[in-house]
């Protein structure tokens, strides 16, 4: 464990909690892409199948449980509890264009041709593009609530910090996982224009609005 990975996990956890609280407190999931949340639930499910078979540490296991439980809770709030506030008309990204290519790629490029490893690889590839429906929805509605932009910032920063974690691990542990690194780079690049808008607008107290 190193500071970058720890801060990355904290950032990821806070993004998940910000979203849960936003929906629960405001009793509304307006502006939130249910499709991205569905993809995140798939990402965590396919990545943490070794939850019971492969104990790394108490921290690792408890974080996995929290991630899986909170992602299902978020999907449940969007599609069940507060579905009346779900903005389906603007959440129209074709997720099959994300799921199918990443599934095929996970069969072609992986570390081990075993079910668990292919599912892990699929989860890594899917996570790198899972935010696209949400970013697409923000660009379609032309704006995002400030709390939603904080959620997106924390979520984007988490994988950016992981990039530094991989530099650290390459340097000091001679460990590197090219699949995770390349996917992490793609994931971070997808946030770049959002990061720009967040830093130039939201941090100056303005509302996040995209040029429609």
């Amino acid at each position: 464990m190193n500071i970058f990975r720890f801060l990355g996990d904290i950032s990821h956890l806070s993004a998940i909690i910000i979203l849960l609280l936003k929906i629960w407190k405001s009793r509304s999931c307006a502006g939130i892409s249910g499709k991205s949340q569905l993809l995140f639930a798939i990402v965590f499910t396919t990545r943490y199948l070794d939850l019971f078979t492969n104990f790394i540490s108490f921290y690792n296991t408890s974080m996995k449980v929290v991630y899986v439980a909170s992602s299902y809770a978020t999907v449940w709030m969007i599609y069940s509890k507060f579905k009346a506030t779900y903005d389906g008309n603007h959440d129209t990204f074709r997720v099959e264009f994300l799921i199918v290519p990443t599934a095929i790629l996970s069969f072609l490029v992986n570390h081990d041709f075993t079910p668990l490893e292919i599912l892990w690889t699929f989860s890594i590839y899917l996570e790198s593009v899972a935010i696209l429906p949400q970013l697409f929805m923000v660009s379609k509605t032309g704006e995002a609530e400030t709390i939603t932009s904080h959620y997106l910032f924390a979520l984007g920063i988490y994988r950016t910090l992981y990039l530094f974690n991989w530099i650290w691990r390459y340097q000091f542990e001679e460990f590197f996982d090219l699949i995770a690194i390349v996917a992490g780079l793609v994931q971070t690049v997808l946030y770049c224009d959002f990061f720009y808008l967040y830093i130039t607008k939201v941090l100056k107290g303005k509302k996040l609005s995209l040029p429609a």
Binding site: N60, W120, D177
Partner: peptide
């Protein structure tokens, strides 16, 4: 193929 180390990252 070398036994792949278990993934220790979240």
């Amino acid at each position: 193929h070398a036994v792949h180390i278990p993934h220790d990252e979240l």
